[in-house]
């Protein structure tokens, strides 16, 4: 359950930026979570309610943008979506996959008031 710590980071980052803008509250926070990041979006949503109480994010909308995994093979140029962490290319079998996306773990955007 490192999603608890991850969720606290979301709140902390959002509050820091909101305070710097003298915001009274955060209306929404948009977070990118990659399919290969090891973080479960549902668990973050679950933690968000409890962690946001009595912060500038109390009552804010949590918008999670799920980023699918994508990889390219440096041996045979195969490229497609992947949903597991692996180096094995489904095209040629070599251990030569390079990940293009899916490891994102970022606060992307805030809406403040």
């Amino acid at each position: 359950m490192h999603e608890l710590g991850i969720t606290q980071s979301i709140i902390e980052i959002a509050q820091d930026h909101a305070r710097a803008e003298n915001a009274a509250q955060v209306l929404s926070v948009t977070v990118e979570i990659g399919a290969l990041s090891g973080v479960v979006p549902d668990a973050v949503e679950f933690c968000f309610e409890a962690c946001s109480k009595e912060t500038l994010l109390d009552g804010a909308r949590l918008i999670i943008e799920f980023v699918p995994g994508r990889a390219r093979c440096s041996a045979c140029a195969w490229e497609d979506q992947i949903d597991q962490l692996t180096y094995t290319c489904p095209g040629c079998g070599n251990l030569s996959l390079e990940r293009l996306q899916g490891e994102e773990l970022r606060v992307k955007e805030l809406e403040i008031d």
């Binding site: 991850i6 929404s28 309610e49 409890a50 970022r106 606060v107 955007e109 809406e111 403040i112």
Partner: peptide, 26 residues
């Protein structure tokens, strides 16, 4: 307390100012 009333899903956010952040959670 763990509230599970999902109030954060129901509030519309009109008139908010958008801030681009792009900060890694770790």
């Amino acid at each position: 307390e763990h509230h599970h009333d999902h109030t954060h899903d129901q509030r519309p956010s009109p008139g908010g100012r958008k801030l681009s952040i792009g900060e890694n959670l770790l």
